[in-house]
Simulated scan of single mutants.
Amino acid sequence: MAKYHRIIMNGESYYREYRYGSDSYGEMLSEEELVHMLLEEVVDEEIEISEREIESALRRIPDREDRYLLQNYIRCLERVGRE
């Protein structure tokens, strides 16, 4: 993965890729541009979650204990997601 140097000009942060082998820099990027570029590189798949579909799937689980276990697990994930 590329390494970047943070450059602060007039209180604004910019980032430039630093190439150690050639001791050179890439183009200057804003933080928003860098984050967008890095996310495109590392995000493999987008998964959309529908609460309605999850609730429907939970209701179709015949075993009450399995259903209860999954409901608790989902609540735990929701709490972790809010932290």
Rank of each mutant, 00 (worst) to 15 (best):
R59V: 05
V80A: 11
A57Q: 07
A57E: 10
Y68P: 00
R60A: 14
G81M: 09
R82F: 03
I54P: 03
A57G: 02
E48P: 01
I74K: 00
P62Q: 07
I54D: 06
C76P: 00
D66C: 06
L58F: 07
N72G: 15
E55N: 14
Y73R: 12
L58T: 02
R79T: 10
N72H: 14
L70F: 10
Y73D: 07
P62R: 11
E51I: 07
I74S: 01
P62V: 04
C76K: 13
R79I: 09
V80W: 05
R52G: 01
E78M: 12
E53R: 14
P62N: 08
S50H: 05
D63H: 07
S50Y: 02
S56V: 04
S56Y: 11
D63R: 05
I61T: 02
D66I: 07
D66E: 15
V80G: 02
I61Y: 03
D63I: 07
I47Y: 03
G81Y: 04
A57M: 08
E65I: 09
E65M: 09
V80T: 11
A57N: 05
N72T: 12
R52V: 09
I74G: 00
S56D: 15
I61E: 02
I49S: 01
R75C: 06
N72L: 15
R59H: 09
R64T: 09
E48W: 02
R79Q: 11
Y68F: 12
L77V: 09
E51N: 13
R75L: 14
L69S: 07
L77Q: 11
D63P: 00
E48V: 08
E48N: 08
S50L: 06
E65A: 12
Y73H: 12
D66K: 15
S56M: 10
R79L: 13
D63Q: 09
E53F: 04
Q71R: 13
E51Y: 05
R60I: 02
E65D: 10
N72Y: 08
I49Q: 00
I49V: 15
I74A: 02
P62F: 03
R79G: 07
Y68M: 10
R82M: 11
E51R: 13
E48I: 08
S50I: 07
E51H: 04
N72R: 14
R60V: 00
